[in-house]
Nucleic acid binder design. Structure first.
Length: 279
DNA sequence: AATTATACCAACCGCCTTTTC
DNA sequence: TGAAAAGGCGGTTGGTATAAT
């Protein structure tokens, strides 16, 4: 289930003591996610869909903010995510799109399926840092004063884009010149690296997990707000169709005592699951 | 082998926008 | 219609892995 084990795996492997006990002011957990939390989140997202994150955070028993849950899902757990290093084509695409749209990472990410805004942002930051460093090195070697002109990329991600894309967050009828000739990164037929093969395999395994635990049409559920509230507070049992198959690994997992922390919400939801399972 | 520098990336923060009540 | 809550976004931080010295 851990999709990232090949990399740093910071989430679960770090010093358990300090970070695992980090708590935000509201009493929410902070810091790296554990594998158990990931599994739980994945399950409840599958159950309820990718929305109403605060609700989802509450009923799942994850002692996390909705915001944190959303971020974890979007940036790490989402089954459609690509993994591994960017391909040369993707790198070119990032540069191309950034030239047009500036630091509008979410927009760039939409043009690059499987890549998240965070990922692209991180890539760009590293990329521009390196570029800046290289440029300065060349300038120093030249002994000329050309460094200043070369450093259109200032230090960090906060630099302004090469083209004057506005920095205002969302509106800004952009200077999108979609008539630029550019390659829309899909359909590149690069040789697959070993790393990407591994990523694909991991993605497949994850998909298998989702399939094995069953899917539901969450829209049915979301259409009924009163029912949602009822579910949230344990007044109503979940329909059996969205409860993990009894005696499945996921069911065992969701019902295991070890999964549930201390707190009224957890207790209530556990009751709810139990009722649903009995029905 | 030990230390330092660099690259990578997960996760948080604060602000703004959108949605809900 | 205004206030509050939730969601989304960009910027930033800090930990870990790896390369270089």
């Amino acid at each position: 289930m851990k999709m990232k084990q090949a990399s740093k795996a910071k989430a679960t492997a770090t010093s358990p003591g300090k970070e695992d006990e980090a708590v935000a002011p509201g009493g929410f957990r902070k810091g790296p996610w554990t594998e158990q939390e990931d599994m739980k989140l994945a399950w409840f997202v599958r159950l309820f869909g990718e929305r109403r994150w605060d609700f989802l955070a509450k009923v799942s028993g994850l002692n996390r903010t909705g915001k944190s849950c959303r971020l974890r899902w979007v940036n790490y757990l989402h089954p459609d995510l690509k993994r591994g290093r960017m391909t040369p084509d993707e790198e070119r695409l990032v540069v191309d799109l950034h030239a047009r749209w500036g630091n509008r990472w979410s927009r760039i990410a939409k043009a690059m399926p499987g890549r998240t805004d965070n990922e692209i942002k991180n890539y760009w930051r590293t990329h521009t840092r390196k570029l800046h460093k290289d440029t300065r090195a060349v300038a120093a070697a030249d002994g000329s004063g050309s460094a200043a002109s070369a450093s259109t990329t200032t230090t960090s991600t906060s630099m302004s884009p090469a083209s004057p894309a506005t920095t205002s967050s969302s509106s800004s009828s952009t200077t999108d010149n979609d008539n630029h000739s550019h390659h829309h990164g899909h359909g590149h037929h690069d040789q697959e690296t070993a790393a990407s093969c591994q990523e694909q395999q991991q993605a497949a395994e994850q998909q298998l997990f989702y399939t094995s635990v069953g899917a539901m049409d969450s829209h049915l559920l979301w259409n009924d707000d009163a029912m949602l509230d009822s579910y949230a507070w344990g007044a109503t049992a979940l329909p059996s169709m969205i409860v993990p198959p009894p005696s499945s690994p996921v069911w065992d997992y969701c019902c295991s005592d070890s999964l549930w922390g201390i707190g009224d919400d957890e207790v209530e939801y556990k009751k709810m699951l139990a009722v649903a399972g009995a029905s």
